[in-house]
Structure formats: C-alpha cells, structure tokens
Design a protein around this nucleic acid. Structure first.
Length: 512
RNA sequence: GGGGCGGUAGCUCAAUUGGCAGAGCAACAGCCUUUUAAGCUGUGGGUUCAGGGUUCGAUUCCCUGCCGCCUCACCA
C-alpha cells in the first residue's frame, strides 16, 4: 500500500508529461511531423537517433588536403551535417559539412547493403548529422569523395533547414536564429571567423609589448569613464542600485596607480542609448594604458594595432570598405581639430575660444549646426558637420575641447582655448580609436568632475558623475600615461566590410 | 521619437484594376550506378504578421498594433 503512492505519482507524472508532449508535437509543421515519424521508425529498428559519441579520423579539410598531397586514404571516418543528397537509384551522392569544409560522400547500394541504403533514403534527412567510413577516391568528374562502406546517424534533425541555394535571407531570422545564418550562409561564418582572428591578433600585439590583460568590474556602484547613459540594475541583498559599466577607464587607471605599467582589457561595455546600424547596447571595447607614454605613443600603437589586425584578418593593409579603398599602412596623417575645422568651415576655434564668440562667428559665416550648451560641444558639432564626413583615409584628429574630455591633460599654448591632448582616428565617419594623454593631476581631475556636475545639474544626462574614489586614487600618484580605447565591433566592421554592427555581433539586440 | 519600405508554404520569391493564393528548392510516392542547385513522373503542404473596417468578394484598399530594414533626430 505504501508503495502504491509513489507509483501513483509517477503514473501521474508520466501522464502529465504525455499531455504536454502531445501538445508540443501537435504544433509541429508537416515536415517536422514526418521527421519525427522517421525518428520513431529508426528507434523501432534499433537505431539510436541521438547516440552518445562519434568518432572521426579526419576532418573534411584534412581529408581533401591529404588526398591532394597524394596520400592513400582508406578507413577514413568522417562526421558532419548532411547538406545535400542526390539519389541516382542504386547509387547516391551526398555532401556533408563539418567545421572545416564540405566533402562529397558516395553511397553504393551494393557496398553499404540494401537495408542500410533504404534507411539512408527513407529515414535520413538533410540537416542530420552522420558519420561515414570508407576509402577516399576521385569520382569521374574529379571530385574528392569518400566511398562509403559504413555509415551511421549521429544526430537527427527535426526541423528542415533553410534552402541550399538561396540560403537564409530574412534578416530578422538571421539575427534571432543565428545558428541558421551560420549553417546556411558561408559569409556569416567568415565574418565571425575573422572576428576571432582580429581579437586574437589584438591580444597578441598587446601581449608582445608587455601589456597585462586584466578584468575589472562590469557591475559597478558608480559608472564612469565616458559620456553615456548607463543601465541601472539592483542588488537585492545590499538593497542598492548598481550600474553596468559604460567604460573601463577609471578602474584601469587605478591599476596604473598600483604600479602596473602596461595594462589592457577587452570586454563588454553597456550604454543605454539608441540602437542603430553602428550602435548595439552592449559592445566590445579594448582599452589600454601605457605608463610613461602620451597620446602620440598611442597614435603609433593604434595604427600598428590596426595593421596587425588587418593582416590577421585579410592578409593585407589595403582594404575596401563599402566601395571605398582604404589604406591602413602606418603612419596615418595627423592634423589638429583646429586646423581641420578652420580649413573646412573657416572658423578658428582658438580665436573664438568661448561660447558667445564662437556662436557669433558661426552665425556670421551662416553655418548650419545645432545649438549646443558649451563651447566644447559646439566645436564638436562643427567638427561632426564639416570635417568628419571628409575624412576618408584613416586620419588622426588631435587636440579636443577640454569640456568634452574630462580625463585628458591640458595642452599648453592654445591661446585662450581650453584644449586637451586627445585624439580620435577617423575613417569614413567611423571612429577607429580614441586616446588621451591621461590626466593625473588629482586636483585638476576634481575640478573636471565639478564642471561635469554643473552640466549634469543643467540637465545633461550624459555628463560624468563625480567619482571621489578615483580622485583619491590619483592623489596617491599616477605616472604620466597614454591611454587608448578601440571599439572592437567597429574595427571588425571595417575589416570585414560590413555596414551594420549587427553583422559582426552574433546575437545583436533586437526588439524583444 | 519622425518619415519611407516591407512581413505570402520549412526556405527563396510571384500573384495584373479588388475576382479560384502560385513557382523553384525542401517534403511525400515512384524511375534512374558518376551526380554537383542532378534529371524525369506524380502528390501533399497556407491563420497571406495580428486585430478591426470598407466591399457581393481583400494578399491587394483603410485604421490600429507587433516585428524587421532604411533614413532623420538623439547618441561616442
């Protein structure tokens, strides 16, 4: 009697399971129903549609390379996804795709046995993972082919895959079900393979120059290091709001105070802003800092870094981006923001070094730009409107307004203009990098925070919050330092010729 | 947030002025021992994004919503 209770419960459980399962199966489309029936048939004849293990002796690529070298290949075991099957009657050709390449298989009815041959044609589907063993031969048309002696199912696929010829085009499905994009579109696989090579090359470049890779907090009590709105989250036990980082800067510079002379981090930053073809709410940033360097040190570093990554991805420094030929060969041209703005708009920002006179000048010249709150933002607006679109080849733009650069050191000899040692590199309206001669004067840093606080009070949501903990770190002494930030996604876009950031992020943010 | 374009079979795409919702691939049943998007014969498959409206009749016209793309604005 006591034993009856668990039995009863287990019957109930299996009953509930079947109800849910029936409901689930009922939602299958025609082809999924058919494939499910095949799975049942396979089980009935003793074939496990999802065996625990697979063995292989060669990848497709290794097989093709070895055969091409003239090796005699027998007893080769290949695995992969069945992507094409051409039934000729007593003979069938198939292609399987593994992680390395596509390779043809030949199934002969007399070689594999009538029953097995019938099972292949009746119960195997495109998309299934299979394993096959046999000798490698060349067919009449010259294609390197595995002549199959034995084969097995490695994993049954229930849903049909996108069409072989056109692939998957629907952008929404491509992003939401990236696996379908990857398995049906060669180009998608190439982009992410290149992305991996680029990041590897970046690490190699930095590691070889003595930079130490570190990890700093993503979850922060106070965000900072850039001008952006953060994501806010909440820690329940501490009962306090926390922020997802918008930049790594302030933590990395604390490490310079701690004596790490060269440091970098490649990591996700999060910004609570609009989503478009060049902005994803989470994106990958590389930041690095070099003690006893300055922004000119970082210019050399960034152009070499791009060169190293371009070579790793494409084997060349001559790239094409959206129809424009770009030459990444160092050194890149350098120009001050002042000279570029003067040339393109006729405004000398050093002569009109405060907001009222700059606005008067803009009005005199009848320049159409949005009104800004500060001199620095107006300068930036002039730059964006008149200079940035003209920069096709990679160009260093040097010496930015202090008001939009709260962590960069002041530049001497700029007349009355408040300018700092900062550069951004631009090409085709893309920012390739952003670097400063880092501010290490704690009192100046405090003053900058106060200035940001005023902007904040005036309603600028992106003004930087005060970080006294960081000021305290600077009070303990930070060496003169050059610092650099590079948007990794943007770099990958440039080096893979993609116009949308969503093409270089595996799972980009879409509306939920 | 503004403007424009789009959402049709598992996938890629058609559908005339508002008049039976189609093709190729995939699937299913066959034929075929050297194919390469194999070929041939036959068959099945639709909440036309969702909801409402106009109409004898809506994939088509109108409204609302959802989603995507482009663009402008915002934004490193």
């Amino acid at each position: 009697m006591r034993e009856g209770i668990p039995t009863c419960i287990s019957h109930l459980a299996s009953f509930i399971f079947e109800v849910f399962m029936d409901d689930f199966l009922a939602r299958f489309n025609e082809q999924e129903q058919q494939r499910h029936q095949k799975t049942i048939r396979l089980r009935e004849r003793g074939v496990n549609p999802y065996p625990l293990r697979a063995t292989r002796t060669h990848t497709a690529r290794q097989t093709i390379d070895a055969f091409t070298r003239g090796e005699n290949l027998s007893g080769v075991k290949l695995v992969g996804r069945l992507v094409a099957l051409r039934d000729m009657g007593k003979l069938s050709f198939a292609h399987i795709q593994d992680g390395s390449a596509k390779i043809q298989l030949m199934f002969r009815k007399d070689a594999v046995g009538a029953d097995n041959y019938a099972m292949l044609l009746k119960d195997f589907d495109l998309g299934d993972f299979i394993g096959a063993e046999g000798d490698v031969v060349r067919t009449k048309t010259g294609e390197i082919t595995l002549q199959v002696a034995r084969f097995e199912l490695l994993a049954k696929t229930l849903s049909p895959l996108p069409e072989k010829w056109h692939g998957l085009k629907d952008t929404e499905t491509r992003y939401r079900q990236r696996y379908l994009d990857l398995l049906s579109n060669e180009q998608a696989r190439e982009i992410f393979a290149k992305r991996s090579k680029i990041v590897t090359a970046m690490r190699k470049y930095l590691d070889e120059r003595g930079f130490v890779e570190v990890e700093t907090p993503v979850l922060q009590p106070l965000y900072g290091g850039g001008a952006a709105e953060p994501f806010v989250t909440h820690h329940n036990k501490l009962d306090r709001d926390m922020y997802l980082r918008i930049a790594d800067e302030l933590y990395l510079k604390r490490l310079l105070v701690g004596g790490i002379e060269r440091v970098y981090e490649i990591s996700k930053d999060f910004r609570n802003e609009g989503i478009d073809f060049k902005h994803n709410p989470e994106f990958t940033m590389m930041e690095c800092y070099q003690a006893y360097g300055d922004y000119t040190t970082m210019m050399t570093l960034v152009e070499e870094l791009y060169a190293a990554c371009a070579l790793a991805a494409n084997g060349t420094l001559q790239i094409t981006y959206q129809g424009h030929a770009i030459d990444l060969t160092p050194p890149w041209p350098r120009a001050t923001m002042r000279d570029l703005i003067l040339k393109m708009s006729g405004v000398d920002i050093y002569a009109d070094a405060d907001l009222p006179s700059l606005e008067r000048r803009v009005e005199e010249l009848n320049l159409k730009i949005e009104r800004q709150r500060t001199w620095g933002k107006t300068v930036d607006e002039l730059f964006s409107a008149f200079v940035e679109p003209t920069l096709i080849q990679p160009t260093f733009v040097m010496d930015y307004p202090e008001e939009i650069s709260p962590f960069a050191k002041k530049k001497p000899d700029t007349l009355r203009a408040r300018v700092v040692e900062r550069f951004e590199a631009f090409s085709l309206n893309m920012e390739l990098g952003n670097a400063f001669t880092e501010l290490n004067d704690p009192l100046d840093q405090y003053a900058r925070f106060m200035e940001q606080a005023e902007l904040r009070n005036a309603g600028d949501k992106e003004a930087h919050p005060i970080d006294l903990d960081f000021v305290e770190a600077l009070m303990h002494g930070m060496p003169p330092t050059g610092g650099l930030g590079v948007g990794v996604d943007r770099m990958v876009m440039l080096l893979t010729d993609q116009s949308s950031i969503r093409e270089v992020i595996l799972f980009p943010q879409l509306r939920t």
